[in-house]
Amino acid sequence: MSRKLELIVLAIILVFAVQFVYMSSTTDAEYGGADGEAEGVIEELTGGTYVPIAEPFWEPPSGEIESLLFGLQAAIGAGIIGYFLGYYRAKNLYEGEVAYKGKNRDSETRS
């Protein structure tokens, strides 16, 4: 199976990763969240007079808890994707083996 697409994707991610490593070690960029920066812009535009009409009723009490919940979110998603892609792959593989012993079918499902 050709890995061309994987290599292209890897190259794209690497370009940005290298850029990040370089920039984070040579400048003092803070890498804060864009959502928070927007809050700053709102404050400047309104001259600090804007009072939010509502507050989040619960906030993660610390950065650790926040990253826990973000990690959980990613893990749930990754688990579901991996489960179903793996399920389909194995299903194709074994159905192919039972139904056709032919070479064509086999190489197709293994791709």
Binding site: Q73, G77, A78, I80, I81
Partner: peptide, 13 residues
């Protein structure tokens, strides 16, 4: 489920 899970993963990163 996979499509929904993909949103879950990417929007957490």
């Amino acid at each position: 489920a996979v499509a929904g899970a993909f949103i879950f993963v990417l929007s957490s990163l």
